[in-house]
Design a protein around this nucleic acid. Structure first.
Lengths: 242, 242
DNA sequence: AATCGCCATATTGTATACAATCTGGCACGC
DNA sequence: GCGTGCCAGATTGTATACAATATGGCGATT
């Protein structure tokens, strides 16, 4: 058989598994990174040549992204990247809070010793990156920590739902970079729930994670409402919010 | 302009908005009602003539349903209706519990007087249907009540997520019809959280709704594990579980 | 006799062609 | 002058045709 060409051809158009799957991944990345600006129309043919695929798989990809809520389809009027609506983000954060609480609770009950150790390691790394003033690295480690906690909950449905909400929040965050004080506070919140996590105190960990999420929400929403949407200067560049 | 033909043509194939949207709705209904059995393969061409559409919109519909988790796509091997996996249902219920709690909490804070009154009316109706022994009617009213509560939470993201989880649970329920005692207990749980709702006691209402969800989970999972999956006699008929 | 490899068939993945619908502008009429 | 109706262009929605891949059976080989 041909078990040879398992690796991705470095050049050429996308070739993940099927074209429409690859297109979904590509488009999602483009949306989350801000390369496709919120509210912008998405002409099919243009994306087709950009991704090197035909309209059929591209359209299938758009339908999937629409089901995820990243784009909106208006019959005969084309697709638009879902605009970032502070009202919606508020709603998303409300649910996120509950999901974080659940994840923290379950993670404490179900994580392995190795996973807890890994969490500790990441937390130390987070501190180091804060001390170094490396916002981007901090941001990435932060996401990793939360992702690990969710994974430790041993609940694929929670994980998938969490990922969906996280992606929406990520898009909002890319518009709003906030201040040093919030950063410091964010770290101290991490210290807080990590203390509970170390003791396997499920209820407290969940509550503190939810509180952390709520604080993040406040900061993001404040930044969102603060900067408005006129002349979105750095939109399109993913910035490191905390 | 042509504001005339707003109504759906009664005859002819599906014609909701676009064909693929209609196909999504049709297929989802077929899956939820059990007309398409869990685990069964879904040949495209067969569904095409059944729905009276071409392969293109049907395939787009399948991609959407795959994103919702109702079908699974295996490249070059066709789509299958996602089998009902007790493990997954357990996970789904875990998240559902948190969603119910959140919905109940927010609903108490945000519902209008009219909505609370409507909830009361539905609750009375539920009692009447229990007394009449009408399981199906009870089941439908039950769903309505929960849907109303979620709507009162004023959170579209929660509503959408809830709907997704509810549909998965619905499929599991259709396999497991459980006993009179559980029915009675379910009603008394409704009495419980409705009492809290009437007092706008958000925290208690949320907690009781979560508990109700947990009890439902126990019953459904017990029934699921009880009957096994050999000779799934009445699979395909939607039954009224509580 | 059992296993491996190959091939015919069916089904899915993709590309292209055609039909339907929306947008923007222009001429006409009031 | 302004609004209305119509038309050309562009874009999306759908159908069909072609290419690629998985499945199951048959035969050759050991």
């Amino acid at each position: 058989m041909d078990i040879v060409k398992t690796a991705t051809p470095p050049a050429g158009p996308i070739r993940r598994e099927t074209l429409h799957q690859g297109a979904v991944a590509e488009l999602r990345a483009m949306i989350l990174s801000g390369e496709l600006r919120p509210g912008s129309r998405v002409p099919e043919v243009q994306l087709c040549e950009q991704l090197g695929v035909s309209r059929t798989p591209l359209r299938e990809a758009l339908r999937v992204l629409a089901a995820e809520g990243l784009v909106e389809l208006r019959p005969h009027r084309g697709a638009v990247v879902t605009p970032i609506d502070p009202t919606e983000i508020t709603a998303v954060f409300e649910v996120m809070e509950a999901l974080e609480a659940l994840a923290g609770d379950l993670a404490c009950q179900r994580g392995t010793v190795e996973e807890f150790a890994e969490l500790d390691r990441l937390h130390d790394q987070l501190h180091a990156q804060f001390d170094a003033g490396d916002r981007l690295a901090y941001f990435l480690t932060n996401r990793q920590i939360h992702a690990r906690i969710v994974a430790m909950a041993r609940n694929p449905s929670l994980e998938a739902t969490y990922a969906g909400f996280a992606s929406k929040i990520l898009r909002a965050r890319s518009l709003a970079n906030y201040d040093e004080e919030r950063w410091r506070h964010s770290l101290s919140e991490h210290d807080g729930f990590m203390a509970a996590v170390r003791q396997r105190d499920a209820a407290t960990a969940g509550a503190l994670l939810a509180a952390h999420s709520r604080q993040t929400a406040d900061a993001v929403l404040a930044a969102l409402n603060g900067c408005g949407s006129d002349d979105p200067g750095n939109v399109g560049r993913q910035t490191a919010s905390l």
